[in-house]
Amino acid sequence: MALLEVKNLTKAFGGLKAVNEVSFKVENGQILGLIGPNGSGKTTTFNCINQFYPITSGDILFKGKSIKGLKTHKICHLGIGRTFQVVKPLSRMTVLENITASAFCRVKTIKDARDKAYEVLEFCKLLKDKDKLAKSLPIGGRKRLEIARALATKPDLLLLDETAAGLNPSELDEAIELIRKIRDNGVTILIVEHIMKVIMTISDRIHAINFGQTIAEGSPQEVANNPAVIEAYLGEEYAQG
């Protein structure tokens, strides 16, 4: 049984179908990359999975059970963590407080939450910044904080929305390493990413969408050579050659 199964997911904003009949599965322990040009519906898919938006039709199964219509916070308790493309740090809280707040998702006492927070800080190499205000972190740090915060909720499935965007080359390598490390700890990952270096190296499978519809799915190699994908990214001429 797949950990997450998206079945014929459709999300319409008025007459515009941002996501149209998209289906895919994320197997346990896998990293599935979701790619597509700008505006193809990747982030909308994420927002539907954690029920940030109510879905128009279709269904989403997590661990075999439908999560359609549940509240966003409930989804988190079930074990789906997410990061935001436009980072949303809790600005006027310190890094430690940010992570402690989310650690309360699984533990009751402040001491346990703090312990969990330190564990995550260590894991994400944010320990030296723990007393800084979240708003004072550079973009690399904020992206890392997004991941750390989501991890503190002990997710089984982690949705990463462009966590590598805006990072410099050395930060990029660190990000790849971190994502691998998270997977090795048994967390399944669904990742949206534009930077090919990241998505091609870490994904087990890739699902490509354009204009809200699936255009290809397969191993990174297969998808990279798929004419429909090349067309979507580079235009028709390149697709033929």
């Binding site: 954690n50 940030f52 509240k71 966003t72 916070h73 988190c76 308790h77 997410r82 935001f84 949303k88 740090p89 809790l90 600005s91 006027r92 809280m93 407080e97 402690t100 707040a101 989310s102 309360f104 998702c105 939450a113 915060r149 989501a150 909720t153």
Partner: peptide, 20 residues
């Protein structure tokens, strides 16, 4: 912690499992 999280960003708080 929950109160301040809600103040700082309600959407982020909600996705971190806080019943805002």
């Amino acid at each position: 912690y929950y109160f301040v999280s809600i103040r700082e960003d309600q959407d982020a708080a909600e996705s971190l499992g806080i019943n805002t």
